[in-house]
Design a protein around this nucleic acid. Sequence first.
DNA 1: GGTAAGAGGCTTTTT
DNA 2: GCCTCTTACC
Length: 749
Amino acid sequence: MTALLEELNSRQREAVLHRAGPLLILAGAGSGKTRVITRRVVWLIREGGVRPSEILAVTFTNKAAGEMRERIQEQLGSSSDAVWVSTFHSTGLSILREHGAAIGLPRSLVVYDDGDQLALLTRLMKDQGVDTTLLPPRAVRSRIDFAKSCGLGPDEMEVADHDLLGERARSVYRSYQAALRASGAVDFGDLLLETVSLLRRNEEVLELLERRLRYVMVDEFQDTSPVQYALVRLLTRKSGNLAVVGDDDQSIYGWRGADVRNILAFERDYPNAKVVRLEQNYRSTRVILDAAHAIIRRSPTRKEKRLFTDQSGGDLVRVLNAVDERDEAQLVARQIEAALSEGYSRGEMAVFYRVNAMSRVLEDALRERRIPYHVVRGRSFYERAEIKDITAYLRLAVNPHSDSDILRVINTPRRGIGTRTVERLRKAAAGSSGSIWSVLASPGSLKEVGPAAVRRLAAFREIIGKLHEMSTSSVSTKDIVREAMIGSGYVSSLEAEEAPEALERLENLHELLSVATERSSNGESLVQMLDDMALAGDADDDVEPEQVALMTLHAAKGLEFDVVFVIGMEERTFPHARAFAAGGWSEDEEALSEERRLCYVGFTRARRRLTLTSADSRWIMGERQVRSPSRFLEEIPSELIERSLRVSGSTAKRYGGRISSGPSWEGSPFPGEVPSNSDPDLVVVDYDFDQRPPDECGRRLRPGGRVRHRTFGDGKIHEVDGLGGNARLVICFDDAGIKKVLARYLEIL
DNA sequence: GGTAAGAGGCTTTTT
DNA sequence: GCCTCTTACC
């Protein structure tokens, strides 16, 4: 009892000790939220007479679930195994696997990931004669996903008048659901939507689950969607023992249907709920919290609150400006080296960026300097083509009616079954309103298919038939996986290639086989393995102890590091261009607010040191774009910032030594002010954004400078009018003559 | 029916 | 810039 409540402040203790009924914990960043949840689970079991199997703890990501499971186990030992800790999606899948028959889902259910989903949608739309350039499948998908996240099927999906996209999306939605059912498949959204409709329609199942689960806890509640909220509400309908933990300031998944308003809804739906606020931060220094608060306080819709800490002192926030993204990466690499020499360990450092694409340049710089790093990226391994191909064979072993999977591998590796034969197969399947597999099973029904093609189809049928047989008898998972790789001819076709990337693919397949072998020895079934592959991230996705972690700001949620870098602190990089209304420069307030919260999440990951970097220009989608500093930089009070300019070796080299050649280097807003410093990157000057010269944003764009344009070639700047990427420049091109060009289309030479 | 080169799209963020 | 899909040709 005593140990359980040790190291808890009075608020935290209150939350842990809450016995029954609804509980809302408003937990600020770094306020010991995970500790409270895990202690509460342990307390309920040890002191509250609750059986471990009666508790469900739902989190958002696998990472969070894994961490929570571990923390609970540390305190409870093996009895913790019975506590059900999982993500929303796996929870849904478990329920569907056990009770899905009640709504007509087959036992051999397979889960389509978003790639499978998009492929299926595209195929359906093309079949329906939809012009996919006018109506992008991605746009349709996002409408369907959004409807699903609101708990709406095709018939309930709301479409406003004159919403053409919505109209079409709804009609595709209908046929898409039909296709999923015919294939015995569900997508991610269905894992929640179908579970909720199962529980709504089937009282028996709901009562069974209600009896089994007496306590439900939800982490990251601000990121739950309406359908997720509906699910946990249903599960605790009788007991009312629903505890949710969240922070409206950290809501960063609005784009995929998460609704912060669930927090408000909770207080409305459970007027007797106990509300506990955790506002003491145990993670960061005061400086970091103040900087984070400066960003988040401008968010218009938030609940007013402010974290406090007793950790004063610490480093000021470092703000570093680079010439371009490569320069920025060098800068970060050198800062990492400096921090290492100060005694920080690599495992306690992380670099965050807005989009995954930004990791590449950074990786190059770290590799060059031999700094061990690790890119934390959701599920890259399972997204590799070769892995997805073998997965398709494995899913067919379980459920050969999955048309998407048939289409994926029917000619992979090449076995001479071309598009025409495939088209005829599909037509025959549609005609008999069955799956392609059922057509293959009765080849007599195939018209217009020549004898050679029939032979090849029979060979393919053999392959899948054998796999299916193996999966229904007691063959081990490992052996089925091996058969899928070898029996399909996949491995031998790769071996024949001899290209270096074929070798890499083979290595990845080897990796998959060892995963399967390990799972086999744990007695895991093929279905279990497939479920995990569909829902789980990479196995080696964890933050490694001796490596610098690289990840998106979204992936950073829930983590903490001593030293944090946020790169790309520029307008239209972060906040991302998407936060601005299409085309124009007007702002979408809600989207911008979400960027703000994302920034807040990023800053509050740092325990000791926060370093922010920006670049004057960035290479984006094959184009060099001029960037101006992020508004977020300007919002941080200057007394919290170590404003830094620098003269870097790489910059000097690339720009012909002009920049570092003298005290009044070109581009400095402070001519004559390049103080010497032991750290070449940190030249501290008294530099305030509010006093910067008007052309600071594009300060290297000045009359006389040389620039490059994609089509016009190189030229000399004559006139500059305006700021940043939008500045209008008159350029005298060497070949193309005098033109007016926007700065963002120019590369600075 | 298969291949290679060219065109076009793409990038938020994750289960 | 990179990847996927289409097109033209074998």
